[in-house]
């Protein structure tokens, strides 16, 4: 439930920020990077001819066939919630239910460019309301711990993916660091994850790939950073394992140790050793971690 909701919020953020910030410097708006970000090009071009803004927005918000769309994620979150409805609060279910019904009622008319930013804002708010209700009402037992593990694993996955694609996008112009296009890209990236103002407080005057990637991935105070997610994952897991029902459970910690090691590095060393390899390693470790949680606690194969 938590993972799917975070995914929906992330999609709304990306659509929104691409619409709002990526367009002006290049005149026309390029929507291809979004498709690349989610490795969705193939699925997209199977059903749409051109990556126009209308098509891509439709694909990511209301296309029920796309497993990476907002409607798909919110529906999955709701069906997930339905199966654990007896342990979540009534308010959680009711809000998710209303939210889903609203998202399901959206049509192409609601996706007009003039409305898009407001629409993405409402979607984000819907998810934020959800996580606020969960935080404020969910009984603090194992359900809460697993909810948090899901949310932070998803956030960590998204942030590494996002930085990875921007890194690819910037690769051709790596020499022209500091060009207006480049700055606009990093700017959009920071804003898409609500990191812009935090970043500015730490680095009032600079904007380089190292400081931006370093902040987004490694700042312990930025709530969506890889670093912040990993330390929350660890804390949540440790607390979970103190539960007396789980005394006999042994959890393999190797992927978590890998993640901790990765987040202990300095931004400079990350960039020098290769950002893409770094992000790849992080994503593999996150996948392993998720699989270990499923295998250990839910006896999944």
């Amino acid at each position: 439930m938590g993972r799917y909701m975070e995914r929906a919020e992330n999609l709304a953020r990306i659509v929104d920020v691409n619409e709002t910030f990526a367009r002006d410097e290049q005149g026309a708006n390029d929507w291809l990077p979004i498709l690349k970000l989610h490795r969705d090009e193939e699925a997209f071009f199977e059903r749409y001819k051109k990556a126009t803004s209308a098509n891509v927005v439709r694909f990511y918000i209301i296309d029920e066939e796309n497993p990476n769309s907002i409607i798909y994620s919110v529906r999955a979150a709701r069906e997930n919630a339905r199966s654990i409805r007896h342990v979540i609060s009534l308010e959680t279910w009711a809000q998710l239910n209303v939210f889903y019904n609203w998202v399901a009622s959206l049509t192409a008319r609601n996706l007009r460019l003039s409305e898009l930013s407001r629409l993405c804002g409402r979607i984000k708010e819907g998810v934020q309301l959800h996580s606020g209700i969960v935080t404020g009402t969910l009984y603090r037992d194992q359900v809460w711990s697993f909810y948090r593990l899901g949310v932070f694993t998803e956030l960590a996955d998204q942030i590494t993916r996002l930085v990875d694609i921007k890194y690819h996008a910037l690769l051709p112009s790596w020499q022209d660091v500091g060009s207006p296009v480049d700055i606009a890209q990093w700017n959009a990236l920071l804003r898409s994850v609500s990191a812009y103002h935090g970043y500015r407080r730490v680095f009032p005057a600079r904007m380089t790939p190292t400081t931006v990637a370093g902040f987004i991935l490694l700042s312990p105070r930025f709530p969506r950073s890889l670093s912040h997610c990993v330390s929350n994952i660890e804390a949540t897991l440790d607390e979970l394992l103190t539960n007396e029902d789980l005394q006999d459970v042994s959890f393999p910690r190797d992927s978590l140790e890998t993640l901790k090691e990765l987040t202990s590095r300095s931004p400079e060393s990350v960039i020098t050793a290769g950002l893409h390899e770094y992000l790849d390693e992080a994503q593999v470790a996150l996948l392993d971690f998720g699989a270990q949680v499923a295998a250990t606690f839910f006896h999944a194969d």
């Binding site: 409805r85 279910w93 009711a94 239910n97 019904n101």
Partner: peptide
Amino acid sequence: LYNLGITFTVYSDRDAID
């Protein structure tokens, strides 16, 4: 009733109709 999900659910191929 609808918002609180005090409903019975009818499933079609791809959707859950409350």
